[in-house]
Design a binder for these strands. Sequence first.
DNA 1: CTAAGTACCTGTCCGC
DNA 2: TGCGGACAGGTACTTA
Length: 277
Amino acid sequence: MPEMPEVEIIRRYLDQQLTGHRIMNLEILLPRQIKWPTPEGYRAMAIGRAVEHVKRRGKYLLMELDNGNELVFHLRMTGRLVYEPEGQSHDSYARLLFQLDDGSLLVYGDTRTLGAVYALPPGERWRLHGLSEMGPEPLSADFTPDYLLEAVSKRRTPIKTLLLNQNVIGGIGNIYADESLFLAGIHPLRSAMSLSATECQRLFTAINRVIAAGIEDGGTTFRDYQNGEGKQGHHQDHLMVYNRKGELCRNCGTPIEKITVGGRGTHFCPHCQEAVQ
DNA sequence: CTAAGTACCTGTCCGC
DNA sequence: TGCGGACAGGTACTTA
C-alpha cells in the first residue's frame, strides 16, 4: 500500500511518539508476518528494549533500539503501523501488538498479510536484499539527473517499469510512478533507453516534485493507507492520472486511459504524454 | 544479466 | 440479489 511519502509520514509520527519508550511485551497474533528471525528470536530481540529513533529507507521503516538492533517493517500492500496512546487496538486485522512502558500500544495491522517484519542485529542488513541493494531515493543527494540518465541508458524496459524497480530508485510505487510520468510528459511505455537527456532531466524534476507533494499532503489514501495516528492522507485529491480512468485530464480535457505495463495498472493522458517511440 | 510469470493473501467492485 | 473473476499503494521466487 504505502509508497515512500506514506512511509515517511508514518515515520515522522512514530519517531515523535515512540522515541524513548520501552517495549514491555509483544503479542504475536500472526507468526508468519515475522520473516526473520523466528518469532521467539524476534521477541527476545525486541522485548525490554527502548526505541531510539524511527528511520526510513525507501518503503522500509526501521526502528532503532537501544541495544543496536533494528526492527524492520515493510508494509507491502495493506500493512499499517498505528500508535494507540490508550493501549487499545482498533484494528480488526491486528497482527502484532507492541506494549510500551507507558501503557500505550503500537499495532501492526495487515489485511492481506503480505507485509514483512524483521529484527536485525547490527551489520545484518545484507540479509534483506530489498534493503541492502536499494537504489538512491528521490529527494536525496545520491539521486541526481546524471544518475537517472545513466540508469535509463542501459535498459530497454518500459520507463514505468524502471521507475518501479527499487534497485534503480528506492521508494517509488505505482501511484507516484504514474504521476511522475504525467508531470514529465512521458508515455509510460517508452523504452527507458529512448529518453533524451532533456526528458531525463524533466523526469528527474517531476519525480522529486511528485514525491515532495505527496509528503506535504500527508500521503495518498484510497482504501487502506493510514498514518501513524490512524488518519488518512490528502494527496488523492491532487492526483492528475492515477485512479482517474475515463475522467478528463486536468490539463487538456482528454479522457485518462488505463493500460497494463509490467503487470501493473498504468494511467496516463494520451495527449499530454507523447506517443511511444 | 533481463524478463515474464507466479505466488503470497483478503476484500471489493464490476459485469453478467 | 448472487456469483465469479479481475483487480488492489508490493516484492520475491522460479523459470525461460
